[in-house]
């Protein structure tokens, strides 16, 4: 009788604790694993600074170069749609902000729901386009392994369940909310062990690339 509520409570309670714990431990392990391998300091005479070009790359790689955009507009556009939509719905939805507030102790202003709702639709559209691209673009098709599809699904489910919950398309609401939370927990648990880690490591990657180029006097 009370299964939906029990499920929600479990998802908000034990399951969330477990998922968050695995997520935090996993991410830290991964970062340690990477950083422990170090980067030898070069003895060559530098032609430029490393720090600034590194920082610059961290930011500049967010924009595609013109040539790549022209050759693969779908990849770029789908990527943008998804990431922007995701960031808005993840970070600027009031209930989410409340969650961050409870976790990290501070919050920030959110956006009106209709805007967040639109952002979610954009993100879902972007993800669907990305999947279609992955299945049809020969390069992506060849590169993609099971993990790539798993990661896609892990990202898609929270958006989908969130959308369905918000629009009351799953009843009862505790079940909808529970499913949404559970899908995020799934994402959190698998995050450190899949490519989802790029969320963090791309900053390292971009920095290394930019710094190594900067050292040689090139901005990459």
């Amino acid at each position: 009788m009370n299964d939906a509520m029990d499920f929600l409570l479990w998802a908000r309670g034990t399951a969330f604790d477990v998922a968050l714990t695995i997520f935090i431990i996993g991410v830290i392990i991964r970062l340690f694993e990477i950083l422990s391998l170090g980067r030898p300091r070069s003895l060559a005479e530098p032609k430029g600074n490393q720090l600034l070009p590194g920082m610059k790359s961290v930011i500049s790689r967010t924009l595609p170069d013109n040539g790549t955009f022209k050759r693969q507009p779908l990849t770029v556009i789908a990527g943008y749609l998804f990431h922007i939509g995701l960031l808005i719905s993840l970070l600027l939805f009031i209930p989410h902000i409340e969650l961050f507030n409870a976790t990290v102790g501070f919050g920030w202003p959110g956006l009106p729901n209709p805007i967040v709702d639109a952002a979610t639709v954009i993100a879902i559209t972007g993800l669907l386009a990305a999947l279609w691209n992955r299945l049809t673009n020969p390069v992506m098709k060849l590169l993609s392994d099971k993990e790539d599809y798993l990661v896609w699904l892990l990202t898609f489910l929270p958006l989908l369940t969130g959308y369905l919950a918000y629009h009351r398309m799953i009843e009862p609401y505790p079940l909808a909310l529970g499913l949404h939370i559970l899908s995020i927990e799934l994402l959190l648990i698998l995050f450190p062990f899949t490519k989802l880690m790029h969320t963090f490591t791309l900053f390292l990657a971009r920095w290394y690339n930019g710094a190594m180029s900067g050292f040689r006097g090139v901005q990459s």
């Binding site: 309670g13 969330f16 714990t21 996993g26 950083l35 409870a102």
Partner: peptide, 29 residues
């Protein structure tokens, strides 16, 4: 508590997890 907020002691759990992560992470490193 707002509906979206998990019911556990998140901040406490998170700090334990960070400590554990650093420990296991150091081993992995």
């Amino acid at each position: 508590n707002a509906l979206s907020v998990p019911t556990g002691e998140i901040s406490r759990n998170a700090s334990y997890a960070i400590a554990a992560g650093v420990g296991v992470g150091a081993i992995a490193a």
